[in-house]
Design a protein around this nucleic acid. Structure first.
Lengths: 242, 242
DNA sequence: CGGATTCTTGACTACGGTCAACGGAAGTGG
DNA sequence: CCACTTCCGTTGACCGTAGTCAAGAATCCG
């Protein structure tokens, strides 16, 4: 009935362990259906207690939150395979919003079934916790970047991270991947102003480290880009950026 | 045999649901023992795959990570009831370090039992996921603070957040709570320099909003402090800081 | 009584923010 | 088909918040 969810971590049999036939059956029940959204569509809103959770099957999006003064912070970029709505599932309310940046296909789950799902299939529950831990890990790195690195380092770091993520997901072809975000998105993700982000990016482009236009990111030399932080300081780094 | 873990989220019966007798029995088995550490003691190291996980029973600590260039980022402060080592449990490796800042009592669990624990007691597994989601939520807020707020706002926000946390844990008496961290800790948590943190704090002190010395934090007017961000900008904030 | 650690304060500097203007691309409507 | 608008990227000029450097005070400790 439902199509197979190639990138859905909750449906992939090879993620950690194989699913039993019974588990697969339950997954099908837990899954409500699939949803397709266009660029710009809000998927989950900050503060909402939506009845549904998602998994990104294809396409990209953004997680962000808005401060009281209207400033926006982009928390992370959403890639295929990402679980969307953990906070709704366990806390009952989202702490941030999620919005599509490209055409996206989503695997839809029923929030009310979340707990049952967790209870009757601990191994899948464990997978979700795994995803949460990975997310926490990434957020920690991002925090360190925003807090400690300067603009050039931060942007180089972000591009490397994103590119590696893309590689792991098989989205990179010929050192090129789709990157459908705006410079403002990147600026808000790194706590920089749009103008400064633009100028810093221009410098990286002039150095032939990357090119990025019309939603396509091309990285010429990943290692060189990863080392950008090094050359900007005289103190040699203890550990490589990647 | 083992003493009761008053603050341990994995032992508290009132956290979400009551534990069955059988569950309690398992918890005792899962629990290895208790550990006491002195201020400055590293509990888990970044990159380590320690064989044990912890829950803070009393005392406070710090989660931090060190960049390649030696800069440090404090990710969060550890309070009683916090679970320490989720990343070791699920990912097999810590992405940050945890260090005691006061005398601490820890509830010790066996990492090798983690998965079994998860499988045989889904409700407790769910609790852990809940803790992870809360952590993610906090990290998101912190990210937004570091990325978007200026020094005064960030420090006021941090103090309010910490104080509220303390209140929720019953650590606040007479508008006063223990806060055994250094200004450098706070600076590294907010991505600010020590000097600037000191001067900004001095300004908040002069405004009679808070006092903090010798490990004791006193907040005179929580609401006023929470509004500090507002007065610094002419644009009125849409939502209160708390 | 040194030595170490933390806190404090002043002087100087620079990274990055703000303001402003322009260009190109894409969409809209008369 | 062409004004008009909107969104995004680009660049220059200026300025301010926060970083760096430096030195002194306070506390703790061996």
């Amino acid at each position: 009935m439902t199509t197979k969810c190639v990138n859905c971590p909750l449906h992939r049999k090879d993620l950690f362990k194989t699913m039993t036939r019974e588990e697969l059956g339950y997954m099908q029940k837990f899954k409500v259906g699939e949803l397709t959204v266009e660029p710009g569509t809000p998927i989950l809103m900050e503060g909402s207690s939506a009845p549904q959770l998602y998994t990104a099957l294809s396409g990209m999006g953004i997680r962000d939150m808005t401060l009281e003064n209207g400033d926006r912070q982009v928390l992370s970029f959403v890639f295929p395979g990402d679980f969307i709505g953990l906070q709704v599932g366990v806390l009952g309310e989202m702490g941030h919003s999620v919005e599509a940046r490209t055409h996206m296909r989503l695997c839809v789950f029923d929030r009310s079934e979340f707990w049952n799902f967790f209870r009757s299939h601990p191994s899948r529950g464990f997978d979700i916790t795994w995803l949460a831990a990975v997310e926490e890990h990434f957020l920690g790195e991002t925090l360190a970047t925003i807090g400690q690195r300067n603009a050039t380092e931060a942007i180089a770091w972000a591009m490397v991270r994103i590119f590696l993520r893309g590689q792991a997901l098989g989205l990179v072809n010929n050192q090129t991947m789709e990157f459908p975000f705006t410079q403002k998105d990147l600026a808000d993700a790194l706590g920089l102003s749009l103008v400064h982000t633009n100028k810093t990016l221009a410098r990286l482009k002039k150095k032939q480290l990357l090119s990025w236009s019309e939603g396509v990111l091309h990285i010429f030399d990943l290692d060189a880009l990863a080392k950008v932080g090094v050359t900007s300081t005289d103190t040699p780094r203890k550990r490589p950026l990647m």
